[in-house]
Amino acid sequence: MTEILGLYNYWIVIFLMMTGFYIVIARENLIKTIIGLNIFQTSVFLLYITMGKVTHGTAPILKASHGGESHGVEHGVEHGAEHGHELHAAAEGHVDLGVDAVKEVYSNPIPSVLMLTAIVVGIATTALALALVVRIREEYGTIEEDEILEMDRNS
């Protein structure tokens, strides 16, 4: 039972991914296939983001109240950068402050970071694919895959 409670999010994401994947491999129409790719990829983003979540966490944006402390740290670092050997000490100094800062539970920022990149990759792929569709439409006058194959067979 705990399994279901703990994992159902993943299962829904898997269902979404597989729906997208199905649209891709069902191969009805070129644009439909691209839409499928899009849904497939978007669902993968969801998979990653789901991983990063921590119960009762908040977005990894440090609260303004810590701004002052962070500011102090900043000085420490700059100071450390000027005198390399002091860097370590400065970092340690920060950890003390950091404990203060992470009293707040943050969700993991890394999946977000990765997915920002992945979203860009996704849109790039989509744009390229759509450009190809436009080209194919110019050449064949249709975007139905079986019609195109038919035309190629006859040519």
Binding site: L30, T33, L37, T125, D152
Partner: peptide
């Protein structure tokens, strides 16, 4: 046929890359 071949490669290749991405995740 070249754009069509490219598009097929794109579709299959992207599926492959997405599988890879799931694995990484």
């Amino acid at each position: 046929r070249a754009p069509l071949a490219a598009l097929h490669y794109l579709i299959i290749g992207t599926v492959g890359a997405t599988f890879f991405l799931i694995g990484i995740g």
